[in-house]
Design a protein around this nucleic acid. Sequence first.
DNA 1: GCAAAAGTGTTACCACTACACCCATGC
DNA 2: GCATGGGTGTAGTGGTAACACTTTTGC
Lengths: 226, 226
Amino acid sequence: MAKLERSVLAVDVVLFRVDDGELAVLLHRRAQEPFADAWSLPGVAVRSAETLESAARRALLEKGGLHEASIPQLHLEQLYTFDALYRDPRGRTVSVAHIGLVPLDDAARSAGAWRPVAAVERGSLPFDHGQILETGVNRLRGKLRYTNIAARLLPDTFRIDELQAVYEAVLGRDINRANFRNKLLRIGLIEQAGVKAEAVGRRGGRPPHLYRFTSEGVEAEERDFV
Amino acid sequence: MAKLERSVLAVDVVLFRVDDGELAVLLHRRAQEPFADAWSLPGVAVRSAETLESAARRALLEKGGLHEASIPQLHLEQLYTFDALYRDPRGRTVSVAHIGLVPLDDAARSAGAWRPVAAVERGSLPFDHGQILETGVNRLRGKLRYTNIAARLLPDTFRIDELQAVYEAVLGRDINRANFRNKLLRIGLIEQAGVKAEAVGRRGGRPPHLYRFTSEGVEAEERDFV
DNA sequence: GCAAAAGTGTTACCACTACACCCATGC
DNA sequence: GCATGGGTGTAGTGGTAACACTTTTGC
């Protein structure tokens, strides 16, 4: 069994994006033992002079394979602190897991090893990373319902069908198009950005308006959105 | 400024109970510097061979002044991990804050230094404990809305007016008696425990039934209760 | 009987669901 | 014109809020 004399504090990051209607997560191929060559969540040990968030961004830089420029803008938030005594065979390691979100249009979407969440076998991940991923997905689903966190998965302005695709990818179910639209506008979560989107890559049909999230934070909203 | 060479992992606990219609928190009078004699949240450094939850219970035992017998039964859950670089003047200390709940009838209610949450001046608490307390209150309020966490603030069977008092104390607002009752029974959160309560300490009026929380976990409920 | 507190029912309103239909554009 | 997708309105349904009313006890 692992030795427990010294404790290490680490961070692991569950970085999400929505890709072509699917929720995807960034994985990292481990170079060293233990679990060499296995796909894991990117993570690093926390240095004594950096915050957890800094460490999480460093994990994405050093282990994530993302473009460096896109990392400072990413939305990052704490997920949960995992502390099982023997979760790491090298010794006691407490890991503060984080969730990160990449916007649809970010260049980071083309870099790194993205895998559809539905295709990741939880048991195949090393350490307790399967549990961390599961916790992350559940948290993201929950926050989508009562916060405006979807804004961090989209560009500043977007079409409503893109927004709906994000909700459907994360929640894993279909949503009625008309009601989705009516509700989000009625409660003031989003508003028209005025201009009409150019018809890039579209196959005809009425051109959509662009929308943005309203500035008022909806963090403390009391009701479900969807 | 503090030195950052070595990192310490700690836990702090926000222990709640409802006392006479008021939400109360357990405080601890610090014996040593820094902040000697100040009232703070109970907390300890995590040992390398114990889990965070064990450390949190140990904090309640060593710093909380509770009866030892009531500590193993307490509901405990992680709140958030606080990591500001200079939150502790002695050096880098990352603290995994926890929420704890004591049932109404527990003997622990008579032990320790309980203070009404509304009366605790956040700025008077040492370190970032004011922020931790605020985060804890908000989390408790949130979970009351969509989980059965109120069960951990009550005995196994209870009267509906006691349950309502818990909700009102935590949420900080009045609730309509008839609708509260109808809804919680309709959605199956609680059920009759069959017997009628004895009229101990009551001043007349129809004797109330006793109720219990239904066994089905309501953790993942999608809708607000209140 | 009267007060007090538990328990039940009623009504108006509002939000959600499902669905039909209209609008604006490409071809 | 026709297909395609964006945008709007409506009827039915069900939950919520406010409140009145009934029931069961103590005195």
